[in-house]
């Protein structure tokens, strides 16, 4: 049987070799796209559940500017199904890294530190730090320096308070609160004099207060920082990041974010930016 064995072996080797080549080619093609969000039909998007105006869960539906932006991004990416999941400031990086959420849209400021853990598409909006005071104080507070000696809300882990105290060097009196909703409660109850953080968050608080018939407040038109709100994405998904950026560009070319801002925050008399922000870049 040796003769046939030899020849059989040769033919088999040929067959195996060609099959292997074919398999390698297939790998080369498939490996390029992988599990990028750019190619998914369904996206799981992490959002906040407790930020008035931006991302809030009421009943079983999420509402707010971030939610609408997330829906628009998915629409322009031609995604069929979108599922929202609640995230918090503590767990958003972990959830992205573990793949529990595909994207995070939740007033997520792009910082060099965070960029070492996750990638960012966008920003989809650049918020500015501003000040919310009771209307009766509005005449005295037109600038961050006018906060000197006043009681200002401090939320743990938020960079807003240190920006006033350390970065701008204004001698303010800190009053601790558990979150910005708590700040609003305390501002209304006169337990503190001012809340200073991103203008969109303040505009959300402003609208909330107006809805609930609280005392008159004033959103001071001052901006002393740029907070680029990015779309968090798993580190290294460059194709996905580019696809999100393209979606954001198209969204702005149709003026959608400006209109969404008007709907959510128009009552606060805030100045919005209607044009696309400068992206961070995906690499």
């Amino acid at each position: 049987m040796r003769t046939r064995g030899t020849r059989g072996l040769t033919f088999r080797a040929l067959a195996v070799g060609l099959a292997a080549s074919a398999a390698l080619t297939a790998c080369g093609v498939a490996g390029a796209s992988g599990s990028s969000v750019a190619t998914k039909d369904k996206l799981i998007i992490g959002v906040y559940a407790d930020q008035p105006g931006l991302g809030r869960l009421s009943g079983s539906t999420y509402q707010g500017f971030d939610i609408e932006i997330a829906k628009q991004i998915a629409k322009f990416m031609h995604v069929k199904t979108v599922e929202f999941k609640t995230i918090t400031a503590d767990n958003r990086e972990g959830k992205l890294q573990k793949g529990e959420v595909d994207l995070v849209v939740g007033s997520y400021s792009i910082t060099p530190d965070r960029k070492t853990k996750v990638s960012f598409a966008g920003p989809y909006y650049v918020a500015h730090q501003s000040i919310l005071v009771r209307a009766s104080d509005a005449a005295q507070v037109t600038d961050v320096h006018h906060l000197a000696g006043r009681r200002v809300c401090r939320v743990k882990k938020s960079v807003s308070f240190p920006r006033v105290q350390k970065e701008r060097g204004v001698p303010v009196v800190p009053v601790d609160a558990t979150g910005y909703n708590d700040c609003l409660t305390k501002l209304v109850a006169k337990q503190l004099d001012a809340v200073s953080t991103d203008d969109l968050i303040l505009a959300g608080l402003y609208a909330e207060n107006a809805r609930e018939g609280g005392p008159a407040l004033k959103l001071v038109k001052t901006s002393f920082s740029d907070e680029p709100y990015g779309v968090g994405i798993k580190q290294g998904d460059v194709d996905g990041c580019e696809a999100v950026n393209k979606a954001i560009t198209q969204m702005y070319q149709q003026n959608i974010p400006g209109r969404l801002l008007q709907v959510q925050f128009g009552s606060s008399d805030l100045d919005f930016t209607w044009t696309v922000p400068q992206f961070e870049g995906c690499e």
Binding site: T6, L14, L18, L24, G28
Partner: peptide, 26 residues
């Protein structure tokens, strides 16, 4: 990646050819 894949495929195909030639010799 196409060039690197191409290189692997060339090597594999080359090996097939060598096996074939060796079988032929034999």
């Amino acid at each position: 990646s196409a060039v690197l894949t191409g290189r692997t495929i060339v090597v594999v195909t080359g090996l097939v050819l060598l096996v074939l030639l060796a079988g032929f010799q034999w």
